[in-house]
Nucleic acid binder design. Sequence first.
DNA 1: AGGACATGTCACAGTTCGGTGACACAACCC
DNA 2: GGGTTGTGTCACCGAACTGTGACATGTCCT
Lengths: 226, 226
Amino acid sequence: MRVAGILLVEDDPSVRTALELALTRQGHSVTSYATGEEALDHIRARRPEIAILDVMLPGIDGVEVCRRVRKLDQLPVILLTARGDDLDIVVGLEAGADDYVVKPVEPRVLDARIRAVLRRAESAASDRITFGELVIDRGALKVTLSGKEIHLTPTELRLLLELVRHPGQVLNRRYLLRAVWDHTHIADSRLVDACVQRIRAKIEPKPGEPVFIHTVRGFGYRFNPP
Amino acid sequence: MRVAGILLVEDDPSVRTALELALTRQGHSVTSYATGEEALDHIRARRPEIAILDVMLPGIDGVEVCRRVRKLDQLPVILLTARGDDLDIVVGLEAGADDYVVKPVEPRVLDARIRAVLRRAESAASDRITFGELVIDRGALKVTLSGKEIHLTPTELRLLLELVRHPGQVLNRRYLLRAVWDHTHIADSRLVDACVQRIRAKIEPKPGEPVFIHTVRGFGYRFNPP
DNA sequence: AGGACATGTCACAGTTCGGTGACACAACCC
DNA sequence: GGGTTGTGTCACCGAACTGTGACATGTCCT
């Protein structure tokens, strides 16, 4: 099941907390703010997968955030409004929102609408895999950790992708040498170890106790989904 | 303003006539039917731009029509339902509907939703794509940067379009050689590199640090929407 | 504990890769 | 023909990458 990085903007703290809780329960990962300014910063910095914006906000309102976002980006947007005021709906959809939801909303309905919007947006999106904070985009060949892009060299990336292709499986050094380096029969080589070490230095929060790439003494390495 | 060929399916004759009239007044061209079977025939034969389907229909219902349509086509679908029954909404959106409207509906609101759905569908198939300051008109084969027209040679344009067709994806040199030059298996060639440089010189504000076409060392190039 | 062995760590130098500009040639247009 | 434009190729250079070996550290077994 896909899990989305959702940006939620809602100035009423009780509504915000309730929605955040409900969405988290549905399996989404949610970041929330109270103002449009913060939301725009977050969008620029963290690239969420979808934004859910309350229309009524102090300062820059949801519709305006939506307009600005639409100028730069394809980021899917759902607008939230307190009443089903028809004029709001027209304005909101004209601003480029992908959907428009009237509060109060059943969590299940909001979830369905989020998934519908994401499904539509996905056709253009690339295939990526998420392991907790680690996101590997196989199409863009990008790796991000907690939203920050990590630079991996070609060999490091190929090795990581090979490990990730078999999550939970132990891959021995000979296999990895063949798969990543095309080395057919170099028996003893510290190459793999060195490369794993370099990857760990980049993606493991504490390289001393690896979370992602585990050493299986005597056999090889295993990529563990957290 | 764009005028859409709308397929309307609604079994209640009075509602059908009312909606047809309202939509026609908004400048749309509407064809309407009372059953899902007729609708599917129409879709196959006439390729409407958008379908508005009542959920409750005798025989094949709206959700089922939506499901079948989605299997073959990208045809945008809006579902209509008599009450705001939450379960219906979830089922409908899961079936792939682009939007879900509860009757009775203000004509202006329905119109806004139609336009929003069409706008989204359009951006996927549109002739003109905008990436920040860079505008690529695939119909006119013109590229403009900050409003100024940029002259690209045919090969440069083909390469740029190929990259833009897969935004965010890394495309390797072999692929690009095949796609743009029809070269089947020239292994080592700096052709792509040279062409990318020429494009960069024209569209990148600072060719030293490219914004649009990124090099992914060891793999290829990636067009990054800003 | 102590030895044997497996793995982590690190720095460095050779190698590869891509950016860049020059250039030759073909195609095209006056 | 003569000039202009588009395209492929090449050589050079700096930057980035990577393999290697030496050494440190860790783990397992007796």
